[in-house]
Each structure stands twice: as structure tokens, then as C-alpha cells.
Amino acid sequence: MTVCRAYRRYSKGSIPDETKMFKIVKREQFSPVTYLWKLEAPDIAKAAQPGHFVIVHHGEGGERVPLTIADFDRQAGTITLVIQAVGKTTTALMGLQEGECLDDLAGPLGHARHFDKVKKVVCVGGGLGVAPTYPQLRQYKQNGAYTISIVGFRSKDLMFWIDRFKAESDELIIATDDGSFGVKGLVTGPLQQVLDQQPDVDEVLAIGPAIMMKACVAVTKPRGVKTVVSLNPVMVDGTGMCGGCRVTVGGKMAFACVDGPEFDGLQVDFDELLARAKRFDTAERESMRLLREKHDCRLPR
């Protein structure tokens, strides 16, 4: 691990800090908007469990973004993140190259996933939820469950990690919105089919955009199948300090970063989650516009 004792800037002051620097030891580009980082972070790798996430922060004036730990290797001391560029920060971070260091990486955060004994599980991953589904799928498999995976992408050229999913799944269904590979349409079609044909499925795990998880729950709820979802409200600190990540589950308020991010999908108020995701839309579009225009100069303080 690279330990940086150099002076690092914090707001205006300069504090020598024992903080580690987090090196990108491997970088892969899956599609024009999806990329993978393998980061040197031995302590996080040691503590990581499926379901955990980290917060990444880079550069003066940078935003803190939560990202799920998509894989970890305790021996090598690395964690893997798979990131989809959706806005200013995730697009800007795409420019970091192999060998470069991230300023701040905090984690693992959230509750580790508690795995009940299940015989048959369906793991549904959609879009940016595909990668975070993987460590859980692997854990289900190791726990001896029969695993059915349904992964969805917008189109064929956005697909990644199919081989990894194949290795851990007894059945694998791939769906693309445009039909360029596998089943045409959303993941909910195959999910419905699987549940109809295999009534002995005792658990569904769904990770992806809120709208996708909402649609999955619409399929599982009438059938009364236990459904675990991983919620992704906008976060700031990720430590329970700000309450910005609050969600309503079973009529009660919860903070996704400390009480979650996994919750009983049948209890989640998805409409509120979807509305709250739009809280910063106007401001974020402004950030993105500046990035595009390359006017991204930082104001002096």
C-alpha cells in the first residue's frame, strides 16, 4: 500500500496526513459509460462483506459518491468497483488512469448482508446493479443455494461479467432492452416467468435503478416471495450523520447508509425514493453542462 505522508490539502489548510492513498491497480472500460476499478485497499478488502459499499471522493470540491463493493480479494488486498457514468462526478472519475491514486476512499459502509438459509434464489441485476449483485450471488452459491440469475442491460455492447455470472449461476438469463442479445425487454419479464414456472423460489434479490427494483417488487409482492433490494438514495457522508439518505420502509423512516442499504423490498416506499432521487436534478445538470464545456475551473477560495 502506498502510504502518503506528504502534505495534502484540506479546505485551505495543509495538514500532513497519514491517510493511505488508494491506487487504481487495474482499470477496464466495459462500454463508453461503464468502467471497472480494482483499488489497492487492503484494510477495506479485509473487512468487506457482500452488501457493503464505499464512498469515493476525489479532488478539491469533489462530491462524495457511494459505490457498491462489487468484489474483494483479501489476499491481494484489493476491492473492485464497477461504475456507470451518469453525471458529473462519475463521468469525471472515468478519466483517472491505472496507477493513479484516489484521494479518499471510505468504507466498508452499510450492513453486511445477512444470508438466510435459502434453497433457491433468483438474483436480478439491472444496469449499474449488475456488478453489485455478483458478490451476493457468489455467497448464495457458496451457501449451497440453487441460483438463477437474471441480468439486464440496455443493449449488447453494455454487457459485462457474463462469464462471472455463468460460473456462479445454475441458470442464467440475459435480457437487453433493445433485444440485441438474449431476451428482449426488461428483467421483469423473465422474473415473472421464472416465478411462475418455479414456485419453490424462496428469495429474490434485486439490485438496480429504483424504477427496476420497484418493477421487480410489483412482480414478487402478489406472489408473496421474499424480496431483498439494495437502495441507492443520494448520500453525503454515508455514516448516519446527515439523514439525506432517508427512506421509508414499512411506514418507518430509515437511513439507507446505516440501516441498509439492503431492505425488505415488499415494505419499501419506492415512489418516495424515486421522487427524492430528483432532489438535485437541476443543480446536477448545471454541473454536467460545465464539465461538457470544460469550464471546470475551480474557484479560488
Partner: peptide, 22 residues
């Protein structure tokens, strides 16, 4: 806490030059 953290820690008063809005 959220409001003040956005402004003080994340420097939302410099948005959009700092990335975090209020």
C-alpha cells in the same frame, strides 16, 4: 446536518464549481 454539511464540508456555496449542490 445535511444542509450545513453540503455547504460547509462539501462547499455547496461554490456550486457548480464545487460538485455538491444544496
Amino acid at each position: 446536518n445535511e444542509y450545513l454539511t453540503r455547504v460547509n464540508l462539501m462547499r455547496a456555496y461554490q456550486h457548480p464549481y464545487a460538485d455538491t449542490p444544496t
